[in-house]
Design a protein around this nucleic acid. Sequence first.
DNA 1: CATGAATGAGAGTTCATTCAT
DNA 2: GATGAATGAACTCTCATTCAT
Lengths: 194, 194, 194, 194
Amino acid sequence: MGTKSAIKKNYIIEKAKNVFEKKGFKTVTMKDIVEECEISRGGLYLYFSNTSEIFESVMSNVYQKDFSFITDEDMLPSKKMALYLREYKKDILQKNDALGTAVFEYCSSIKKSEENYITENVKSAIDILKNIIEEGVSCGEFVCDDAECVAKDFVFVLEGLRYYSFCSEVSDHDIDKAIMHILQGIIPMQQYVN
Amino acid sequence: MGTKSAIKKNYIIEKAKNVFEKKGFKTVTMKDIVEECEISRGGLYLYFSNTSEIFESVMSNVYQKDFSFITDEDMLPSKKMALYLREYKKDILQKNDALGTAVFEYCSSIKKSEENYITENVKSAIDILKNIIEEGVSCGEFVCDDAECVAKDFVFVLEGLRYYSFCSEVSDHDIDKAIMHILQGIIPMQQYVN
Amino acid sequence: MGTKSAIKKNYIIEKAKNVFEKKGFKTVTMKDIVEECEISRGGLYLYFSNTSEIFESVMSNVYQKDFSFITDEDMLPSKKMALYLREYKKDILQKNDALGTAVFEYCSSIKKSEENYITENVKSAIDILKNIIEEGVSCGEFVCDDAECVAKDFVFVLEGLRYYSFCSEVSDHDIDKAIMHILQGIIPMQQYVN
Amino acid sequence: MGTKSAIKKNYIIEKAKNVFEKKGFKTVTMKDIVEECEISRGGLYLYFSNTSEIFESVMSNVYQKDFSFITDEDMLPSKKMALYLREYKKDILQKNDALGTAVFEYCSSIKKSEENYITENVKSAIDILKNIIEEGVSCGEFVCDDAECVAKDFVFVLEGLRYYSFCSEVSDHDIDKAIMHILQGIIPMQQYVN
DNA sequence: CATGAATGAGAGTTCATTCAT
DNA sequence: GATGAATGAACTCTCATTCAT
């Protein structure tokens, strides 16, 4: 596929993203995407065979956050925690009507045994937080018996808020409060900065 | 519509529930339900005009739990808490492939401003837990500064697990661990019984 | 069929008339009539098998005007003419939104060779007017070479106005003017009274 | 829509015309037209959304007569009258089982206040005839006090015959006789040529 | 007689997918 | 590559008609 094709493919992906944000996943049709892209019916089929394929492409374009700071040896665990949670929060707030519904619909329509975006996301988030907490414990910033348990607490509370946000308004403040409450369980003084 | 009709209507609701459990909400068609019920095309329309109407009926048949114990003045708050959380857990585990996906699809397809099953459910759960905790604090069973905050912690962790359960396996044990972790924050000794 | 049945049948016919006035003939369904009558679906079939049958009954109830004065030997032809045309006019004006459309739809959906309400009506009107004119000529009230031709002029002008009235407003005055114009061709002085 | 499409669209219009001639307007279905055209169900929807839209297209293809001679300054009014009435007659005779019924059904199903084919047609015919008569009076060919009244006499008699023709046989001769009778009222000598 | 639930045929409409150009 | 006309399958919905009660 030449450069021109790649450009067009990317164009389709960008446009399709709008459609998935508007309609979720299940009810999006090839026609919807053709119309959003203002290309020909046949044209779309040159690049994608069905909406799942398009959605996969949208997701791999979208789900790329830079979490390289996690491995930065010079950064304090408390700082890492603050940065990571801030990103998480931003993610949820942005999804207050965006791709989240589509992701859910897509993932829940796949057989459970398979890996999917939500599973991957949750697992990696638990892992990252667990590492940060353990690091924090070693250097004396955090106090915690069971890092995995706290990590899961963080992640599921945040996922719960995300889930809730698809059907109801969730504010910046709501998320902050939930995070602070858990943080208080592992640090003597507040170091989480908005 | 006489008694006979009521029986048939209930029959349709029961069968339709299977369909919603299998397919969620958005992609369920009147034809799907007709086929599951093994009735005629026109027959279904005698009772329901569209899938939303059927789904509403399914929900009002289903979503009726007995939480009367909450107001029982002789029951210890710790006991109430245990009972309530057990029900919550059961609810999530049953939904490990059941109506939850359909509920989500239905609710997220409704305008956010409107009340919906998920919003209602979350709000009422937070309320109930907050009351139990406050009761527990008054009688010395629990220790807690901010009952609402803890209640939300409970609810969103559980909702997070529910959400996750639609796309991945969630075990009895996973839920127990999450609950225990939060409980430890407010009680000196474990009283939560499975 | 007992008296009770006859009453019910008449009730249906009356109600059905409303439906035909509202919707014409072709698009009226058995369901429309059942609903207008507020009887059961099966109930209607005890009396009528289809809408044509009902329409026929409506028509035989409706199309009965008293033109006995036509044969009254003591009445002046000019008076007969006036009375007859007045009835004709009334008929058209009443049909300014009533059964006329249904009659047309019914008649034009029947094979042309068969007799139908419109054919019958037109033929009998021509006949009556021709007789009145001839009578008038004999007694010196009218002057006319070709009574049939004038009779047809009357009838087709009036039918033209009737036809036009189904799609556009036609006033009392419009009809009067048309009638007067033809009358002037056969009488020296105006004797047509509204 | 390119040239090819225009051809197909015209093809559909031609075929649809047959259907409307056979069945009138109200009971014609998209399926009827699909079958007459021998195209696919979906194919028709590429060009038209409903039967009204198709009927409108049929009408604008059909209702285009050349009456330019009306404004020809060199032609005698009597000649114009003869030509115009001949066209009118032809129109009625052709409709002896053709589009007229459909036109009526279509127009009578529209709210009366709106302009429609029948209203427009009648109004323009009255106007044209009135002008011809007045022209004829100026140049001495016709004798007439009230041109509008005579014009209406012509038009409504002819419309009456048209209406009658949908339900019964109307011959060339019937129309001629009616026309002659009115003409005799305004010209001393017959100049209407068949 | 009367009811109204039930059936199934049939019309409307939308789309995924193909294919000639 | 790209287009968009064309097809046909699938769904929605409405009614005429029947029939057990």
